[in-house]
């Protein structure tokens, strides 16, 4: 099957620091992945790991310094704003802040039909408003409200309505459920999933809620300091994480069960700065399994059972950190 979205060796560089000691840092340092039609791909990682930058780079909102992005076989990186415009019709974005991404001066009705106006699609605005609001589970009376009159969950739904207005083929959703209550979170995710099934949408979902990833994503990538440390099938990764960072992330997931034994892999809290990337494997400063080799040589990305892992010593299922076992 041909991929809908193809990202190859993508890099994003930022220039930081005062004029005389200006330096480049890599927010995204060479990532590659594919997303097929109808597939949900999840990006997970700590804040500052480059998830949002990667999403913006795919959508052309952020210039890239190396690599390529192709949509439906066509290169879309480096397109001018004008040339990118038709692409945004088929590739829409849901931003992180639900209320902040809606203009406070526009009504919900205007907001959900704004994509049609921007792309010069002539439709019956009244009918489209009704159709889209129904699709996301809001009734027509919402059309006259302003964003400040909406709750977080309702604003999120308006964001979804805007994202699907033009029947895109790919939605990039940045933290689509951050700050929502569990039942509302379920509604928004069910809605996206339903649209994915009915319209054959592909989705890239950025989140740090791993429970959500487990339920809705097909494949996932774990990001650390702008690189993918592990990519592969969601269920496989949840069953047996191979990269120590993935294992630590999964074990850190608080579960709503007071009696659950918590076999946690604790990491030193401090994430290295992008200005001073560690030598060798970039995770070795926090890795409980790290050896001399890890601080010397950067691990290559290896393919193993349809997974891509950047680690010298991929974990066996159920592995526990050596240090934790020594201390009772």
């Amino acid at each position: 099957m041909t991929a809908l979205l193809e990202v190859r060796d993508l890099e994003v560089t930022f220039r930081v620091g005062p004029m005389l000691s200006r330096r480049d840092i890599k927010g995204v340092a060479g990532v590659s992945f594919d997303v097929s039609p109808g597939e949900t791909f999840a990006l997970v990682g700590e804040s500052g790991s480059g998830k949002t930058t990667l999403a913006r780079a795919i959508n052309g909102l952020q210039g890239i310094s190396a690599g390529s992005v192709s949509f439906d076989g066509q290169r879309i990186d480096g397109l001018s704003t004008g040339a990118m415009k038709p692409m945004r019709k088929v590739m829409s974005m849901m931003f992180q802040d639900p209320v902040g991404s809606l203009s406070p001066r526009m009504t919900v009705g205007d907001l959900v039909t704004e994509p049609f106006r921007i792309h010069g699609v002539s439709v019956d605005f009244r009918a489209e408003t009704e159709r889209l609001l129904n699709l996301v589970g809001l009734n027509e009376t919402f059309a006259d409200r302003f964003p400040h009159q909406l709750s977080g969950g309702q604003a999120r739904r308006v964001g979804v309505a805007r994202a699907i207005a033009l029947n895109p083929r790919l939605i990039i959703a940045d933290e689509p459920t951050a700050g929502l209550d569990v039942s509302v979170q379920g509604e928004v995710l069910n809605l996206l999933n339903d649209l994915r099934e009915r319209l054959g949408l592909a989705m890239v979902i950025i989140t740090h809620n791993l429970h959500v990833v487990h339920h809705i994503a097909d494949r996932m990538a774990v990001m650390y300091l702008g690189r993918f440390v592990e990519t592969g099938d969601c269920e496989q990764i949840f069953d047996a994480p191979a990269h120590p960072y993935t294992a630590a992330l999964l074990s850190a997931n608080p579960e709503p069960d007071p009696d659950k034994a918590r076999n946690r892999i604790s990491l030193p809290a401090e994430v290295p700065s992008l200005l001073a990337r560690p030598k060798g494997c970039e995770f070795h400063t926090r890795c409980p399994w790290a050896s001399d080799r890890c601080s010397r040589d950067a691990p290559p990305v290896v393919d193993k059972d349809a997974r891509k892992i950047a680690c010298h010593y991929p974990l066996q299922p159920g592995a526990r950190p050596p240090v934790a076992e020594a201390t009772p």
Binding site: E46, S47, H208, L210, A248, L249, A252, N253, P254, R264, S266, L267, A269
Partner: peptide, 9 residues
């Protein structure tokens, strides 16, 4: 506002 690992810590 924190990620899973920091949240737990």
């Amino acid at each position: 506002a924190l990620d899973a690992t920091l949240e737990v810590a």
